[in-house]
Design a protein around this nucleic acid. Structure first.
Lengths: 208, 208
DNA sequence: CGCCGATCGGCAACTTCCTGCCACACTGGG
DNA sequence: CCCAGTGTGGCAGGAAGTTGCCGATCGGCG
Protein backbone atom coordinates (compact mmCIF):
# COMPACT_ATOMS: atom_id res chain seq x y z
CA UNK A 1 0.00 0.00 0.00
CA UNK A 2 0.97 3.61 -0.39
CA UNK A 3 -2.17 5.41 0.65
CA UNK A 4 -5.06 4.10 2.66
CA UNK A 5 -8.11 5.83 3.96
CA UNK A 6 -9.23 4.67 7.34
CA UNK A 7 -12.81 5.53 7.96
CA UNK A 8 -12.99 5.67 11.71
CA UNK A 9 -10.89 6.15 14.76
CA UNK A 10 -11.51 2.56 15.79
CA UNK A 11 -10.18 1.26 12.50
CA UNK A 12 -7.14 3.48 12.76
CA UNK A 13 -6.48 2.26 16.23
CA UNK A 14 -6.78 -1.35 15.24
CA UNK A 15 -4.47 -0.87 12.33
CA UNK A 16 -1.73 1.20 13.91
CA UNK A 17 -1.64 0.36 17.59
CA UNK A 18 1.25 -2.07 17.17
CA UNK A 19 3.18 0.52 15.18
CA UNK A 20 2.83 3.06 17.95
CA UNK A 21 4.07 0.51 20.41
CA UNK A 22 7.17 -0.38 18.47
CA UNK A 23 8.04 2.98 16.95
CA UNK A 24 11.24 4.63 18.06
CA UNK A 25 10.36 8.01 16.69
CA UNK A 26 6.93 9.55 16.95
CA UNK A 27 6.08 13.05 15.85
CA UNK A 28 2.63 14.37 16.45
CA UNK A 29 0.83 17.66 15.91
CA UNK A 30 -2.66 18.61 16.92
CA UNK A 31 -4.75 21.58 17.86
CA UNK A 32 -5.95 20.09 21.08
CA UNK A 33 -5.88 16.97 23.18
CA UNK A 34 -9.15 15.57 21.95
CA UNK A 35 -7.55 13.13 19.59
CA UNK A 36 -8.28 9.52 19.02
CA UNK A 37 -5.14 8.63 20.88
CA UNK A 38 -6.07 10.51 24.03
CA UNK A 39 -9.62 9.27 24.09
CA UNK A 40 -8.65 5.69 24.76
CA UNK A 41 -7.33 4.25 27.95
CA UNK A 42 -3.83 3.91 26.67
CA UNK A 43 -1.01 2.72 28.85
CA UNK A 44 1.11 5.51 30.25
CA UNK A 45 3.73 6.23 27.62
CA UNK A 46 6.82 4.56 28.98
CA UNK A 47 9.70 5.91 27.03
CA UNK A 48 12.63 3.64 26.84
CA UNK A 49 15.88 5.42 26.18
CA UNK A 50 15.96 5.18 22.41
CA UNK A 51 12.42 6.34 21.79
CA UNK A 52 11.83 9.91 20.81
CA UNK A 53 8.37 11.39 21.01
CA UNK A 54 7.59 14.90 19.91
CA UNK A 55 4.24 16.54 20.31
CA UNK A 56 3.16 19.93 19.14
CA UNK A 57 0.03 21.75 20.19
CA UNK A 58 -1.66 25.09 19.91
CA UNK A 59 -1.34 27.60 22.73
CA UNK A 60 -5.01 27.16 23.53
CA UNK A 61 -4.46 23.88 25.31
CA UNK A 62 -2.55 25.71 28.01
CA UNK A 63 -5.66 27.64 28.91
CA UNK A 64 -7.33 24.48 30.05
CA UNK A 65 -5.81 23.48 33.38
CA UNK A 66 -6.36 19.77 32.85
CA UNK A 67 -4.79 19.76 29.42
CA UNK A 68 -1.94 21.93 30.63
CA UNK A 69 -1.25 19.51 33.45
CA UNK A 70 -1.31 16.63 31.02
CA UNK A 71 1.20 18.37 28.80
CA UNK A 72 3.51 19.06 31.69
CA UNK A 73 3.30 15.43 32.68
CA UNK A 74 4.23 14.37 29.15
CA UNK A 75 7.10 16.81 29.26
CA UNK A 76 8.25 15.38 32.54
CA UNK A 77 8.41 11.80 31.30
CA UNK A 78 10.57 12.84 28.40
CA UNK A 79 8.16 13.70 25.63
CA UNK A 80 9.27 16.72 23.68
CA UNK A 81 6.36 19.11 23.89
CA UNK A 82 6.21 22.31 21.92
CA UNK A 83 3.65 25.01 21.35
CA UNK A 84 3.08 26.16 17.82
CA UNK A 85 1.88 29.63 16.95
CA UNK A 86 0.37 28.27 13.74
CA UNK A 87 -2.69 26.17 13.29
CA UNK A 88 -1.83 22.63 12.33
CA UNK A 89 -4.01 19.90 11.03
CA UNK A 90 -3.66 16.77 13.06
CA UNK A 91 -0.62 14.92 11.85
CA UNK A 92 1.30 11.91 13.06
CA UNK A 93 4.61 10.66 11.74
CA UNK A 94 5.95 7.28 12.79
CA UNK A 95 9.60 6.35 12.42
CA UNK A 96 9.97 8.52 9.33
CA UNK A 97 8.08 5.83 7.50
CA UNK A 98 4.39 6.33 8.08
CA UNK A 99 2.23 9.42 8.00
CA UNK A 100 -1.25 9.74 9.37
CA UNK A 101 -3.33 12.77 8.52
CA UNK A 102 -6.69 13.42 10.08
CA UNK A 103 -9.52 14.61 7.88
CA UNK A 104 -12.42 16.82 8.73
CA UNK A 105 -14.68 15.85 11.53
CA UNK A 106 -17.86 14.74 9.81
CA UNK A 107 -20.84 13.31 11.59
CA UNK A 108 -19.02 12.67 14.82
CA UNK A 109 -16.21 10.56 13.42
CA UNK A 110 -13.22 11.29 11.30
CA UNK A 111 -11.44 9.76 8.42
CA UNK A 112 -7.71 9.34 8.50
CA UNK A 113 -5.37 9.07 5.60
CA UNK A 114 -2.45 6.76 6.16
CA UNK A 115 0.61 6.97 3.92
CA UNK A 116 3.79 4.98 3.74
CA UNK A 117 5.04 6.33 0.46
CA UNK A 118 8.54 7.70 1.13
CA UNK A 119 7.81 10.84 -0.87
CA UNK A 120 4.76 11.65 1.11
CA UNK A 121 6.50 10.90 4.34
CA UNK A 122 9.44 13.05 3.37
CA UNK A 123 7.42 16.10 2.38
CA UNK A 124 5.16 15.87 5.37
CA UNK A 125 8.19 15.47 7.58
CA UNK A 126 9.83 18.59 6.22
CA UNK A 127 6.68 20.55 6.87
CA UNK A 128 6.51 19.16 10.32
CA UNK A 129 10.12 20.04 10.99
CA UNK A 130 9.57 23.58 9.78
CA UNK A 131 6.64 24.00 12.09
CA UNK A 132 8.54 22.32 14.88
CA UNK A 133 11.43 24.74 14.54
CA UNK A 134 9.31 27.81 15.03
CA UNK A 135 7.34 26.30 17.87
CA UNK A 136 8.44 27.03 21.43
CA UNK A 137 9.39 24.39 23.94
CA UNK A 138 6.71 24.04 26.57
CA UNK A 139 8.80 25.42 29.40
CA UNK A 140 9.81 28.51 27.45
CA UNK A 141 6.28 29.08 26.38
CA UNK A 142 4.83 28.75 29.81
CA UNK A 143 6.77 31.63 31.29
CA UNK A 144 5.81 33.87 28.38
CA UNK A 145 2.27 32.81 28.97
CA UNK A 146 1.99 33.18 32.68
CA UNK A 147 0.71 36.71 32.56
CA UNK A 148 -1.85 36.09 29.89
CA UNK A 149 -3.12 33.15 31.85
CA UNK A 150 -3.50 35.41 34.83
CA UNK A 151 -5.45 37.97 32.88
CA UNK A 152 -7.47 35.60 30.72
CA UNK A 153 -10.29 34.92 33.16
CA UNK A 154 -11.06 38.61 33.59
CA UNK A 155 -10.68 39.10 29.88
CA UNK A 156 -13.10 36.33 29.14
CA UNK A 157 -15.52 37.71 31.68
CA UNK A 158 -15.79 41.09 30.05
CA UNK A 159 -15.83 39.58 26.59
CA UNK A 160 -18.63 37.25 27.58
CA UNK A 161 -20.52 40.13 29.13
CA UNK A 162 -21.01 41.46 25.63
CA UNK A 163 -19.88 45.00 26.31
CA UNK A 164 -17.76 46.90 23.85
CA UNK A 165 -14.01 47.34 24.01
CA UNK A 166 -14.22 50.84 25.39
CA UNK A 167 -16.22 49.70 28.40
CA UNK A 168 -14.32 46.47 28.85
CA UNK A 169 -10.97 48.21 28.87
CA UNK A 170 -12.14 50.67 31.47
CA UNK A 171 -13.54 47.88 33.61
CA UNK A 172 -10.16 46.16 33.49
CA UNK A 173 -8.36 49.43 34.05
CA UNK A 174 -6.45 49.11 30.81
CA UNK A 175 -5.95 51.28 27.78
CA UNK A 176 -8.13 50.33 24.87
CA UNK A 177 -5.07 49.57 22.80
CA UNK A 178 -3.68 47.24 25.42
CA UNK A 179 -7.04 45.59 25.96
CA UNK A 180 -7.26 44.84 22.26
CA UNK A 181 -3.74 43.52 22.27
CA UNK A 182 -4.75 41.12 24.99
CA UNK A 183 -7.83 40.07 23.09
CA UNK A 184 -5.70 39.47 20.00
CA UNK A 185 -3.25 37.38 22.04
CA UNK A 186 -6.09 35.44 23.55
CA UNK A 187 -7.62 34.80 20.17
CA UNK A 188 -4.28 33.63 18.85
CA UNK A 189 -3.99 31.37 21.85
CA UNK A 190 -7.40 29.97 21.09
CA UNK A 191 -6.55 29.66 17.42
CA UNK A 192 -9.57 31.74 16.57
CA UNK A 193 -9.86 34.20 13.72
CA UNK A 194 -13.10 35.85 14.76
CA UNK A 195 -14.54 36.80 18.09
CA UNK A 196 -17.48 34.53 17.56
CA UNK A 197 -15.12 31.64 17.07
CA UNK A 198 -13.13 32.69 20.09
CA UNK A 199 -16.31 32.64 22.13
CA UNK A 200 -17.10 29.14 20.99
CA UNK A 201 -13.60 27.89 21.70
CA UNK A 202 -13.49 29.55 25.08
CA UNK A 203 -16.74 27.91 26.01
CA UNK A 204 -15.51 24.58 24.67
CA UNK A 205 -12.55 24.78 26.97
CA UNK A 206 -14.83 25.63 29.84
CA UNK A 207 -13.19 28.99 30.36
CA UNK A 208 -16.41 30.92 30.69
CA UNK B 1 -41.25 40.85 57.16
CA UNK B 2 -40.93 43.12 54.17
CA UNK B 3 -37.67 42.05 52.62
CA UNK B 4 -35.74 38.85 53.17
CA UNK B 5 -32.61 37.56 51.55
CA UNK B 6 -32.59 33.86 50.98
CA UNK B 7 -29.10 32.54 50.52
CA UNK B 8 -29.65 29.43 48.50
CA UNK B 9 -32.07 27.77 46.17
CA UNK B 10 -32.79 25.11 48.78
CA UNK B 11 -33.75 27.69 51.34
CA UNK B 12 -35.98 29.46 48.86
CA UNK B 13 -37.66 26.23 47.98
CA UNK B 14 -38.26 25.32 51.60
CA UNK B 15 -39.68 28.71 52.30
CA UNK B 16 -41.93 29.22 49.31
CA UNK B 17 -42.99 25.79 48.10
CA UNK B 18 -46.32 25.99 49.88
CA UNK B 19 -46.96 29.42 48.41
CA UNK B 20 -46.43 28.15 44.90
CA UNK B 21 -48.84 25.34 45.58
CA UNK B 22 -51.62 27.57 46.83
CA UNK B 23 -51.12 30.61 44.62
CA UNK B 24 -53.82 31.44 42.14
CA UNK B 25 -51.67 33.79 40.11
CA UNK B 26 -48.08 33.17 39.26
CA UNK B 27 -46.00 35.38 36.99
CA UNK B 28 -42.50 34.37 36.16
CA UNK B 29 -39.72 35.70 33.95
CA UNK B 30 -36.37 34.19 33.22
CA UNK B 31 -33.70 34.04 30.59
CA UNK B 32 -33.63 30.30 30.41
CA UNK B 33 -35.04 27.19 31.96
CA UNK B 34 -32.16 26.56 34.31
CA UNK B 35 -33.96 27.95 37.27
CA UNK B 36 -34.27 26.61 40.75
CA UNK B 37 -37.83 25.64 40.00
CA UNK B 38 -37.03 23.53 36.97
CA UNK B 39 -34.10 21.81 38.58
CA UNK B 40 -36.24 19.95 41.08
CA UNK B 41 -38.53 17.05 40.45
CA UNK B 42 -41.64 19.10 40.83
CA UNK B 43 -45.07 17.65 40.31
CA UNK B 44 -46.51 18.36 36.88
CA UNK B 45 -48.22 21.70 37.19
CA UNK B 46 -51.86 20.81 37.38
CA UNK B 47 -53.74 23.97 36.74
CA UNK B 48 -57.14 24.09 38.26
CA UNK B 49 -59.47 26.47 36.52
CA UNK B 50 -58.87 29.53 38.64
CA UNK B 51 -55.12 29.44 38.59
CA UNK B 52 -53.28 31.66 36.16
CA UNK B 53 -49.65 31.05 35.40
CA UNK B 54 -47.63 33.27 33.11
CA UNK B 55 -44.09 32.60 32.08
CA UNK B 56 -41.82 34.74 30.01
CA UNK B 57 -38.54 33.66 28.45
CA UNK B 58 -35.91 34.83 26.04
CA UNK B 59 -36.00 33.68 22.43
CA UNK B 60 -32.85 31.69 22.99
CA UNK B 61 -34.66 28.91 24.79
CA UNK B 62 -36.42 28.02 21.56
CA UNK B 63 -33.10 27.12 20.00
CA UNK B 64 -32.70 24.28 22.41
CA UNK B 65 -35.06 21.50 21.33
CA UNK B 66 -35.57 20.15 24.84
CA UNK B 67 -36.40 23.53 26.29
CA UNK B 68 -38.63 24.36 23.35
CA UNK B 69 -40.54 21.13 23.86
CA UNK B 70 -40.89 21.90 27.53
CA UNK B 71 -42.30 25.32 26.74
CA UNK B 72 -44.80 23.90 24.31
CA UNK B 73 -45.88 21.41 26.94
CA UNK B 74 -46.41 24.22 29.44
CA UNK B 75 -48.37 26.10 26.83
CA UNK B 76 -50.50 23.05 26.19
CA UNK B 77 -51.48 22.57 29.82
CA UNK B 78 -52.64 26.16 30.02
CA UNK B 79 -49.61 28.10 31.13
CA UNK B 80 -49.37 31.43 29.38
CA UNK B 81 -45.96 31.39 27.75
CA UNK B 82 -44.47 34.40 26.05
CA UNK B 83 -41.16 35.26 24.49
CA UNK B 84 -39.61 38.56 25.41
CA UNK B 85 -37.29 40.47 23.12
CA UNK B 86 -35.68 42.08 26.15
CA UNK B 87 -33.36 40.57 28.66
CA UNK B 88 -35.04 40.08 32.00
CA UNK B 89 -33.59 39.26 35.36
CA UNK B 90 -35.25 36.27 36.92
CA UNK B 91 -38.42 37.43 38.59
CA UNK B 92 -41.35 35.69 40.20
CA UNK B 93 -44.55 37.29 41.37
CA UNK B 94 -47.02 35.33 43.47
CA UNK B 95 -50.64 36.40 43.81
CA UNK B 96 -49.72 40.07 43.50
CA UNK B 97 -48.44 39.78 47.03
CA UNK B 98 -44.97 38.35 46.95
CA UNK B 99 -41.99 39.11 44.73
CA UNK B 100 -38.90 36.99 44.34
CA UNK B 101 -35.87 38.39 42.56
CA UNK B 102 -32.85 36.30 41.77
CA UNK B 103 -29.41 37.75 42.38
CA UNK B 104 -26.22 37.11 40.52
CA UNK B 105 -24.97 33.60 40.27
CA UNK B 106 -22.00 33.53 42.60
CA UNK B 107 -19.99 30.45 43.35
CA UNK B 108 -22.54 28.06 41.94
CA UNK B 109 -25.48 29.17 44.02
CA UNK B 110 -27.63 32.22 44.02
CA UNK B 111 -29.20 34.52 46.49
CA UNK B 112 -32.84 35.45 46.20
CA UNK B 113 -34.53 38.52 47.52
CA UNK B 114 -38.06 37.95 48.70
CA UNK B 115 -40.40 40.90 49.17
CA UNK B 116 -43.93 41.17 50.40
CA UNK B 117 -44.04 44.92 50.75
CA UNK B 118 -47.03 46.10 48.67
CA UNK B 119 -45.00 48.91 47.16
CA UNK B 120 -42.31 46.64 45.95
CA UNK B 121 -44.81 44.18 44.65
CA UNK B 122 -46.70 46.89 42.84
CA UNK B 123 -43.70 48.40 41.09
CA UNK B 124 -42.26 45.08 40.12
CA UNK B 125 -45.63 44.04 38.84
CA UNK B 126 -45.95 47.06 36.62
CA UNK B 127 -42.54 46.39 35.16
CA UNK B 128 -43.49 42.83 34.60
CA UNK B 129 -46.71 43.81 32.91
CA UNK B 130 -44.91 46.22 30.64
CA UNK B 131 -42.49 43.54 29.58
CA UNK B 132 -45.32 41.07 29.25
CA UNK B 133 -47.22 43.34 26.91
CA UNK B 134 -44.42 43.61 24.39
CA UNK B 135 -43.59 39.92 24.56
CA UNK B 136 -45.06 37.61 21.94
CA UNK B 137 -47.23 34.62 22.74
CA UNK B 138 -45.32 31.41 22.15
CA UNK B 139 -47.42 30.27 19.21
CA UNK B 140 -47.06 33.58 17.38
CA UNK B 141 -43.39 33.61 18.01
CA UNK B 142 -42.80 30.11 16.82
CA UNK B 143 -44.07 30.71 13.31
CA UNK B 144 -41.93 33.79 12.98
CA UNK B 145 -39.06 31.71 14.17
CA UNK B 146 -39.43 28.64 12.03
CA UNK B 147 -37.20 29.86 9.25
CA UNK B 148 -34.45 31.11 11.47
CA UNK B 149 -34.40 27.78 13.22
CA UNK B 150 -33.94 26.13 9.85
CA UNK B 151 -31.08 28.38 8.88
CA UNK B 152 -29.38 28.63 12.22
CA UNK B 153 -27.24 25.50 12.00
CA UNK B 154 -25.63 26.58 8.75
CA UNK B 155 -25.28 30.07 10.10
CA UNK B 156 -23.56 28.83 13.21
CA UNK B 157 -21.29 26.63 11.12
CA UNK B 158 -19.91 29.47 9.09
CA UNK B 159 -19.72 31.74 12.09
CA UNK B 160 -17.82 29.13 14.02
CA UNK B 161 -15.49 28.59 11.08
CA UNK B 162 -14.13 32.04 11.77
CA UNK B 163 -14.37 33.36 8.24
CA UNK B 164 -15.53 36.86 7.48
CA UNK B 165 -19.04 37.90 6.47
CA UNK B 166 -18.11 38.23 2.82
CA UNK B 167 -16.98 34.63 2.62
CA UNK B 168 -19.70 33.30 4.86
CA UNK B 169 -22.45 34.94 2.82
CA UNK B 170 -21.07 33.49 -0.38
CA UNK B 171 -20.82 30.07 1.17
CA UNK B 172 -24.48 30.28 2.17
CA UNK B 173 -25.42 31.75 -1.17
CA UNK B 174 -26.82 34.86 0.44
CA UNK B 175 -26.26 38.55 -0.02
CA UNK B 176 -23.98 40.04 2.57
CA UNK B 177 -26.79 42.25 3.76
CA UNK B 178 -29.12 39.34 4.25
CA UNK B 179 -26.43 37.27 5.91
CA UNK B 180 -25.85 40.04 8.41
CA UNK B 181 -29.55 40.37 8.98
CA UNK B 182 -29.63 36.71 9.86
CA UNK B 183 -26.68 37.07 12.19
CA UNK B 184 -28.39 39.99 13.89
CA UNK B 185 -31.57 37.94 14.31
CA UNK B 186 -29.61 35.05 15.68
CA UNK B 187 -27.78 37.26 18.12
CA UNK B 188 -31.06 38.74 19.27
CA UNK B 189 -32.42 35.25 19.70
CA UNK B 190 -29.41 34.37 21.78
CA UNK B 191 -29.70 37.58 23.74
CA UNK B 192 -26.14 38.44 22.80
CA UNK B 193 -24.77 41.89 22.15
CA UNK B 194 -21.42 40.90 20.74
CA UNK B 195 -20.33 38.10 18.49
CA UNK B 196 -18.05 36.75 21.15
CA UNK B 197 -20.98 36.49 23.50
CA UNK B 198 -23.08 34.92 20.79
CA UNK B 199 -20.38 32.31 20.31
CA UNK B 200 -20.37 31.50 23.98
CA UNK B 201 -24.14 31.25 24.18
CA UNK B 202 -24.34 29.15 21.06
CA UNK B 203 -21.84 26.77 22.50
CA UNK B 204 -23.65 26.74 25.82
CA UNK B 205 -26.80 25.65 24.07
CA UNK B 206 -24.86 22.97 22.25
CA UNK B 207 -25.62 24.49 18.87
CA UNK B 208 -22.11 24.21 17.54
C1' DC C 1 -54.90 43.16 -13.48
C1' DG C 2 -53.06 46.17 -9.75
C1' DC C 3 -52.26 46.41 -4.97
C1' DC C 4 -50.34 44.73 -0.72
C1' DG C 5 -47.04 42.82 2.32
C1' DA C 6 -42.82 40.47 2.86
C1' DT C 7 -38.22 39.37 1.70
C1' DC C 8 -34.00 40.23 -0.55
C1' DG C 9 -29.86 42.56 -1.67
C1' DG C 10 -27.24 46.76 -2.94
C1' DC C 11 -25.78 51.26 -1.18
C1' DA C 12 -24.16 54.28 2.27
C1' DA C 13 -23.27 56.19 6.69
C1' DC C 14 -21.86 54.90 10.94
C1' DT C 15 -19.82 52.14 14.70
C1' DT C 16 -16.74 48.86 16.25
C1' DC C 17 -12.72 46.41 15.79
C1' DC C 18 -7.86 45.56 14.21
C1' DT C 19 -3.04 46.82 13.75
C1' DG C 20 1.18 49.31 12.56
C1' DC C 21 3.72 53.02 14.25
C1' DC C 22 5.72 55.67 17.70
C1' DA C 23 6.62 57.88 22.07
C1' DC C 24 6.92 56.97 26.87
C1' DA C 25 7.93 54.50 31.17
C1' DC C 26 10.02 50.78 33.56
C1' DT C 27 13.59 47.22 34.33
C1' DG C 28 17.81 44.76 34.42
C1' DG C 29 22.27 44.28 32.90
C1' DG C 30 26.89 46.42 31.27
C1' DC D 1 24.61 56.40 33.62
C1' DC D 2 23.38 54.37 29.30
C1' DC D 3 21.21 51.15 26.76
C1' DA D 4 18.53 47.32 25.07
C1' DG D 5 14.38 44.90 25.88
C1' DT D 6 9.68 44.91 27.19
C1' DG D 7 5.13 46.52 28.11
C1' DT D 8 1.91 50.37 27.67
C1' DG D 9 -1.23 53.52 25.43
C1' DG D 10 -2.37 57.25 22.00
C1' DC D 11 -3.14 57.93 17.14
C1' DA D 12 -4.34 56.90 12.60
C1' DG D 13 -5.91 54.41 8.81
C1' DG D 14 -8.05 50.57 7.28
C1' DA D 15 -10.88 46.34 7.77
C1' DA D 16 -14.95 44.35 9.52
C1' DG D 17 -19.40 44.60 11.19
C1' DT D 18 -24.09 47.17 11.93
C1' DT D 19 -28.01 49.62 10.43
C1' DG D 20 -31.36 52.47 7.92
C1' DC D 21 -33.04 53.18 3.49
C1' DC D 22 -34.73 52.02 -0.94
C1' DG D 23 -35.70 49.76 -5.13
C1' DA D 24 -36.47 44.98 -7.12
C1' DT D 25 -38.77 40.75 -6.87
C1' DC D 26 -42.21 37.38 -5.63
C1' DG D 27 -46.47 35.35 -4.09
C1' DG D 28 -51.24 36.14 -2.45
C1' DC D 29 -55.72 38.60 -2.84
C1' DG D 30 -59.41 41.63 -4.10
Amino acid sequence: MTSTIVRSEEALFARTAHLFASATEVACAADDLNTWASSRPRPRPQLHGDKRVRKMYRPGVLLDPTSAAHLRELDRVGVDVRISPDEINETIILDRRLVILAGELVGGSREFSVFDSPDVVRSVSTLFEAAWRVASPLAAYEVRFAELRALAPKLLDVLASGCKDETAARRLDLGVRTYRRRVAELMAALGATSRFQAGVRARELGLV
